[in-house]
């Protein structure tokens, strides 16, 4: 290897955009109509979070954990891993995140929802964007609808929705639950940027916003702990 400064972002891109987007077409064709179930389940969780926040994070964790594991196995390992050896490392990280989400949902003192503050409302917006807006990006980018990225099927919307729910929640578990989703968004955003895809900016902006809001949330948590 040469000095890192001599490398451009696209030097790390191992595949063409055409091959990348066809992964989603193949995955969607294999799994349809599971997309309807994952999207409806995600919307149901949003509704539960707004109407009955008390137990919402338990159900959120119980839904998100298997979806993270499913996306890791079905998409990252079976599809994306075929063209990107980095998935050998990303997929285990997804499995770890699944375990963390499960543990946070089941163990006492896990993240909890309260009244939505400004950060929580931004998280709600992010979750809804991941559920409803992200699949439409395929059409907006001139790609076929058959290649839409859908929550619970494709990694990016699954991770964005997860980040949204985490921003809506409070609790020390966030320190453990946030790094993997944020790192994935950064990785995927840079990959899309190397491919010259405009939606890279949407993902990177969401990542930056989520990281900023999460930091604020954790700082408030820390300040409260000091006061107590």
């Amino acid at each position: 290897m040469g000095p890192w400064s001599t490398y451009r972002l696209d030097d790390f891109l191992l595949f063409s955009p055409r091959v990348y987007w066809r992964l989603f077409e193949a995955e969607n064709a294999a799994l349809w109509p599971l997309h309807l179930a994952t999207t409806l389940a995600g919307l149901a969780l949003v509704g539960l979070s707004l109407r009955r926040p008390g137990r919402a994070m338990v159900w959120t964790g119980l839904l998100l954990a298997p979806l993270w594991a499913f996306v890791a196995w079905s998409f990252l390992l079976q599809r994306y891993g075929g063209i990107n050896w980095a998935m050998d490392y990303a997929a285990p990280a997804f499995f770890v995140q699944a375990l963390l989400l499960l543990a946070a949902a089941l163990m006492p003192g896990g993240p909890a929802l309260g009244r939505l503050d400004a950060i929580g409302r931004a998280g709600l917006g992010l979750a809804l964007a991941g559920l409803l807006l992200y699949p439409a990006l395929a059409l907006a980018s001139g790609r076929p609808w058959a290649g839409a990225e859908v929550f619970g099927i494709a990694p990016d919307p699954t991770v964005l929705v997860t980040l949204g729910f985490l921003l809506m929640a409070r609790g020390r578990w966030l320190v453990l639950l946030l790094p993997i989703p944020l790192l994935w968004c950064l990785f995927s955003g840079l990959t899309l940027l190397a491919m010259g895809e405009a939606q890279a900016w949407l993902l990177l902006a969401s990542t930056g916003l989520a990281a900023l809001l999460a930091t604020l949330r954790l700082m408030r948590l820390g300040a409260r702990a000091v006061r107590e």
């Binding site: 595949f15 091959v19 992964l23 599809r79 075929g82």
Partner: peptide, 12 residues
Amino acid sequence: WITFNVGNDPAL
């Protein structure tokens, strides 16, 4: 490099 990295896509 890049061109033949088409994964499991039978058409490609």
